[in-house]
């Protein structure tokens, strides 16, 4: 059975296999180099938490922009807080707050959102993403590690002092 013929074909197959393994390794390597790396710090570490300030500083019905954290801190009429990611959920433009109209209007394709981040007009498919807000000893803190997706606004998302 062990003729040179079969041995040769076995070795040939082995070469093929080795070549395949080498190729897979090369792809694995390239894949890892291309893998997005989260350069931001991990959840809960001090630098990802932004101290917004004492509760009294924010009047009800206003929206304050935080540039470094890339979010808006909205104080609702009932005194609750929401931290809204400033990225439009349509294609990712930055939405400015219009105090006179009382809503966010995206410059790119004219989506608009109310103070809760809820969609007032399409094409945006879902409300603005949220960052979690904690209020400790009357100080508002926002964890900007990663934005939370949601489908509608509901009262449980609001942080109250």
């Amino acid at each position: 059975m062990n003729t040179p013929q079969t041995r040769r074909s076995f070795l040939g197959k082995l070469w093929f296999l080795l070549g395949g393994v080498a190729l897979a390794e090369a792809f694995w390597l390239a894949g890892d180099f291309l893998r997005p790396r989260n350069r931001r710090t991990r959840r809960g570490t001090p630098s990802s938490i932004i101290v917004a300030g004492p509760v009294e500083r924010f009047e009800t019905g206003t929206v304050t922009a935080f540039r470094e954290g890339k979010f808006y801190l909205a104080r609702l009429d009932d005194g609750g807080f929401l931290a809204l990611h400033r990225e439009c959920t349509h294609l990712g433009c930055t939405v400015p707050w219009r105090q006179d109209e009382g809503r966010f209007v995206c410059p790119c394709h004219a989506s608009s959102f109310d103070i809760h981040g809820d969609v007032l007009s399409a094409p945006a498919p879902r409300p603005l993403d949220l960052f979690s807000v904690r209020i400790e000893n009357g100080i508002v803190k926002v964890d900007t590690t990663s934005p939370l997706k949601r489908n509608v606004f509901d009262a449980s998302q609001v942080a109250r002092p």
Partner: peptide, 11 residues
């Protein structure tokens, strides 16, 4: 993959 991260930046 195309943004090499959450948003467009240095990487």
């Amino acid at each position: 993959l195309m943004r090499s991260g959450q948003e467009i930046g240095a990487s």
